[in-house]
Amino acid sequence: MNPLLDVTDLVVRYDDHTAVDHVSFHVDAGETLALIGESGCGKSSTALAVLGLLRPEHGSSVRFAGQELTALRGSRLRALRTRFQPVFQDPYASLDPRTRIGDAITEPLRVHRRPVAGRAAELMELVGLDPAYADRRPHELSGGQCQRAGIARALALEPRLLVLDEPVSALDPSVRSGIVNLLTDLQDRFGLGYLFICHDMALVRHTAHRVAVMSAGRIVETAPVRELFAAPREPYTRDLLAAHHRRPAR
């Protein structure tokens, strides 16, 4: 069976700078692949290319459920794009401040001419957001509630893969674990694949199935999560993991 997402020899260039240099990885249904590495290593450029928001160089392949994304244009590309959706870091910045939450959540449905009736409440309940908030605007919600709305919006078109770019790092600590639990729960219920970009190694160890380590545009190591944290093979990975904090014993 094809993996949900299969990326082969992905190359992204900005003028003469190669941000992503022949990167290959896959994500299966129901699986979280964490992409880790320092700022500027090419994680976000990889994510943008996977989302079709940035055109990779000729020769790159991004296959979604067997379909080559880089070869598609126009309506066929738009149709395929409904199957994978982004969740961004800053929940306030990713929602239009003037649009009511219920409308923001169902906007992807209207764009793709799908039925909207009753869907806002259904999606809000799915992410643990009181449907009574449908008439509110983003600034009237807490950061955690806004991120739940962002996740509900990402789920509106019933995608199979979510690209999560630091989805909890901008949230207040006391609401972070609730969002982490929600994402884990949604994955288990719907078999979603997650491409998870994250700086927080403790969170990666807690949520990911496999980890790909990026450095200077290349993936230097990919391993199951236990293996990577127990015995990182690459010196770069060891350095990256050594930077984590220790917490006083409880």
Binding site: S142, V175, S177, G178, T184, D185, T207, L241, R250
Partner: peptide, 30 residues
């Protein structure tokens, strides 16, 4: 206590039992 309990274990501590155990979480927000 809720802040400390809701963090995933650091890398020097044992991971939580079972795959992806739900983290302690509290409702609402500040």
């Amino acid at each position: 206590a809720c802040l400390v309990a809701s963090l995933p274990p650091t890398l020097d501590a044992e991971p939580l039992e079972g795959p992806r155990t739900p983290l302690p979480a509290i409702g609402g927000g500040p």
